[in-house]
Amino acid sequence: MALKLARLGKQKKIPDSLPFWLLLPTVLILFIVQIYPTVYTAWLSLQERKPTGWIYVGTKNFERLFRSSLFNESVGHTIVFLVSFIALTMLLGFLTALLLNQKIRFVGFYLSLIFIPWVISTIISGQAFRLLVTPDYGVFAGILQDPALFPPNGISVLTDARPSPWFGSFPFPPSKGMILLVIASTWRSLPFTALLILASLQMIPTEIIESSRIDGANGWQIIRFILVPIILPTLVVTIFNLILTGMNGVAIIISLTGGGPGTSTQIISYLLYSLGWGQIQFSQAAALGLIIAVVNWILILATLRLTKVEEAR
């Protein structure tokens, strides 16, 4: 057996490098937990369930999905949510990191405080934000629903009708529910984002900043031309993380808005959840899952491309 293996090795039918064999178990496990589910999802997206079993229906599930009014609406909600969530989180995360990067007292304490939202479960975060704005019974209900403060009828975040869209049927401006969702999601993702950026900022030698100051650079110029280019790789990783969190996160929507008011916070991942667990349409859910995966890849590749262009400049 050993001789046979040795012979095979000599004939290059099996690789003879140690790293190959060491990596093989990992590759096998990845195949089981990633490749197989992907292939199964692709297969499922082309089937339809009948009492007698699965039948092949080609692209029918995709067609039904594209014809569904909720799918088109959800795409709009997803764009609004993703852009707002990523922009707000990156901006606040960067500012927080800049603040924490200053030589101030109790930085460790502030860091511990700021990390609290990250360690709280998503469902609890959503519930907490919901309790703040629940009509009539919420913590801020008295303030928000006061017509004197917010004429003419006060604000009811979870029930106010969405504003008329400015651009055809594209859901912008967003509903108050969507704004709350963006705020709650940002609140939760901010600590990790800030920490990643802070770690990166702390790697920058202070000499660079000081010499740029001597050369006459102002604060904005230091950020724009020194800090951002240096920490760009970290920013890209952070954006990847936020894209995936925003695209695939559904727990906070379930606990915060339940997709409402109406359908105004139903982003595409919520639709996926609803199709699979609510409507028990596993095939359509699989089709949507594949679409989401492709969109994730496109967004990540686009971000990579943009940052390469930025690096080249």
């Binding site: 629940t134 009509p135 009539d136 629903q145 009811s156 979870l158 029930t159 339940g258």
Partner: peptide, 9 residues
């Protein structure tokens, strides 16, 4: 208003 708030409010 809670009628439309969801979550059995």
């Amino acid at each position: 208003d809670t009628v439309f708030a969801g979550g059995f409010e």
